[in-house]
């Protein structure tokens, strides 16, 4: 009890100084984006079929990015969460592979202001994805699970300026995993056998030789006052090979989204020093 009272006294005594310190820190708005994408999808997974499938790709992504507090290096950090769905057909048009994935990643990048309006960032990310592919007409191999965790470099370049009087930001961001782990059943192994308890050789070390991937987003943010419209083009490519099973997922998609900077401000502080993530 005595210790609790002492802690309360110390906290009360230091509160004004803490408030003073926070008043000197810049406000760091969270750049938040809700994006939807629609495009083409190309899938192949030799566990299900040796034939490539093509069709539609749909996705929803929620993304956050915020400048970090670090006074030494100007860095940004954020995370995103995405849900995607693919519906593809074989060349003959008589079979369908459905795919669904949930993925999330966290990233941190050092950024540089290169020239007036230009900036770039380089850093890394850690991500995970889970999902499945489903080919209904197959007998004992109708589905393939997707599961991976990875880390890798990420970079962006951005130009911020105006088109006539319209503020805009053109950005290209790119990421590629370098290491991690991913799931792949053995060449002829059925999920029935995994269910019986044979779980050896299912998780593989991911490196560019076994699992390589590129995620790219070229976007234009058009600022209409209080809201920002994002238009873009997304390209994702992934290829993996383990246990003589080759998987491939490629998508090209048009992106449309809404971006806004979220700030938590004390209305009594009029001299807030704002440090945005992007602009």
């Amino acid at each position: 009890m005595f210790q609790l009272i002492r802690k309360l006294i110390i906290l009360t005594a230091t509160l004004p100084f803490a408030a003073l310190l926070s008043a000197q820190e810049p406000v760091r708005p969270v750049s938040t984006a809700w994006m939807a994408e629609v495009g083409s999808s190309h899938l192949a997974d030799t566990y299900l079929s040796p034939i490539r499938y093509s069709g539609m790709h749909y996705g929803l992504t929620y993304s956050r990015l915020q400048a970090m507090k670090s006074p030494l290096l100007p860095c940004v950090q954020g995370w995103d969460l995405g849900l995607s769905f693919d519906k593809t057909r074989n060349r003959a048009g008589n079979a369908t592979i459905l795919g669904a994935r949930l993925e999330g990643s966290w990233r941190m990048m050092r950024r540089w202001h290169l020239a007036k309006g230009f900036q770039a960032g380089v850093g890394g990310y850690a991500g995970a994805e889970f999902g499945a592919l489903y080919l209904s007409r197959n007998s004992n191999n109708p589905a393939q699970a997707i599961g991976a965790v990875c880390v890798g470099p990420e970079a962006f370049v951005q130009w911020t300026g105006k088109l006539k009087k319209l503020p805009l930001a053109v950005r290209w961001q790119l990421s590629s995993p370098l290491a991690g782990a991913f799931f792949c059943p053995n060449y002829g192994e059925l999920y029935y056998e995994i269910q019986l308890g044979n779980r050896s050789d299912l998780v593989h070390f991911a490196w560019p030789g076994s699992r390589r991937s590129v995620r790219s987003l070229l976007s234009v943010d058009l600022n209409f006052g209080r809201s920002t419209l994002r238009l873009g083009y997304s390209f994702n490519a992934l290829s993996s090979k383990a246990n003589n099973v080759t998987s491939r997922r490629i998508s090209h998609a048009a992106v449309v989204g809404i971006v806004c900077d979220l700030v938590t401000l004390n209305p009594r502080k009029s001299d807030a020093n704002i440090l945005p993530a992007y602009y």
Binding site: V122, A155, L174, R212, V214, S216, R248
Partner: peptide
């Protein structure tokens, strides 16, 4: 700024190389 451009110029061809798919 030069080092940043160097890093990006290294990453770009790396990413292009990594996008090559395993053959089927």
């Amino acid at each position: 700024r030069t080092s940043c451009l160097h890093i990006i110029s290294l990453l770009l061809p790396l990413a292009v190389a990594l996008s090559a798919c395993h053959p089927i």
